[in-house]
């Protein structure tokens, strides 16, 4: 079975799974795990959007 993902959806899925693992493994308390996971997810997705706009500006 093969699937096709867009660049953005591939990056968001990557961010989701990596953030879950980072949140669980890098913090000790449940509340802190959730907060850190959300922070990582925001940084991943934010980084993708910033990089996308940077490439769009460089291309012009």
């Amino acid at each position: 079975m093969t699937i096709q993902l867009t660049h953005f959806s591939a990056a968001v899925l990557f961010a989701l799974f990596a953030s879950i693992v980072f949140g669980i493994t890098q913090r000790s308390e449940t509340r802190e795990m959730v907060r850190y996971g959300l922070y990582c997810f925001a940084m991943f997705v934010g980084g993708v959007i910033v990089a996308g706009w940077a490439m769009w500006i460089l291309r012009r």
Partner: peptide, 15 residues
């Protein structure tokens, strides 16, 4: 952890 790592690996194969 299981769902995340399994999903990531299986999506990698599917891609």
């Amino acid at each position: 952890l299981m769902v995340s790592i399994f999903a990531m690996f299986l999506i990698g194969l599917a891609l």
